[in-house]
């Protein structure tokens, strides 16, 4: 056993110098009580995580956005096309990273992607001169696809249904958005509106009738206050 004359303490392990004050340790009679003898892994070589790819991609997208703004300003065409580049980049940064993460709930992911893509469509429609195709056709189509996709997921993996039921219900409710838009005169295609609303209604009914208690308990846990 070794001891430090300055700190008045004994030191276990293979130290030659006192870990507290740095002075050379002197040999000493052990105190005579049992010590646990802990060892720790040598972590001196461990380096902090540094994700080069991520940083490179971030740099390239910032560069791309910056260059397109610059070109757009220097070569005026009367059309702000650089906004499309920026919106697309924001969309990619918002959607791709969650996709690469391990999925906990695919239905939740689907709902998130549907909503984000709907926003992208509205933004694009707005940038290239509002003609309303996003609210009339793109959003209803996306919602229909979402409702059908969640239904298909439930059919193919019935054991996961309790986890998905909340999102099926929410997606069903979102199916009525085009109807609301139609009443405010934003949406023009009554056919698309009715198809989406019908699918949404079906989805909500299925969850309410078949989900009964599971839906209720899921609501209670998500909305407890």
């Amino acid at each position: 056993m070794k001891a430090c004359d300055i700190c008045h303490a004994q030191v276990t392990g293979t130290h030659e110098f006192c870990p507290l004050c740095g002075k050379r340790l002197q040999p000493a009679e052990p105190y005579g009580y049992t010590l646990p003898g802990n060892r720790y892994p040598d972590l001196s070589r461990i380096s902090a995580q540094y994700n080069f790819m991520l940083r490179l991609l971030l740099f390239l997208s910032l560069l791309g956005g910056g260059v397109s703004v610059l070109v757009n300003v220097l070569v005026p065409t009367g059309f702000w096309w650089c906004l499309i580049v920026i919106v697309a980049e924001v969309y990619l940064w918002l959607t791709i990273p969650p996709l690469l993460r391990r999925a906990r709930n695919y239905a939740k992911r689907l709902l998130f992607q549907t909503l984000l893509t709907a926003l992208l469509m509205v933004a694009l429609d707005f940038i290239i001169g509002w003609r309303g195709w996003s609210v009339s056709y793109a959003i209803p189509s996306l919602l229909c696809a979402g409702i059908v996709a969640i239904a298909a997921m439930i059919v193919f993996s019935r054991t996961n249904w309790p986890q998905y039921v909340f999102y099926q219900f929410t997606m069903g409710l979102l199916g009525f958005i085009p109807l609301v838009l139609y009443f405010f005169g934003l949406s023009t295609s009554i056919v698309m509106v009715l198809i989406t609303a019908a699918l949404g209604l079906g989805s909500v009914l299925v969850t309410v009738v078949f989900g009964d208690r599971s839906l209720k308990s899921d609501f209670r846990r998500r909305f407890h206050f």
Binding site: I6, C7, H8, T12, E16, L20, L35, N38
Partner: peptide, 24 residues
């Protein structure tokens, strides 16, 4: 160090052990 010194001064038999992040 000051804490260990104080406790040793009070007559306690102190033994120290580290995870290797220290002066060395």
């Amino acid at each position: 160090q000051a804490i260990v010194q104080k406790m040793a001064e009070d007559g306690l038999e102190v033994t120290i052990e580290t995870n290797g992040v220290d002066y060395e």
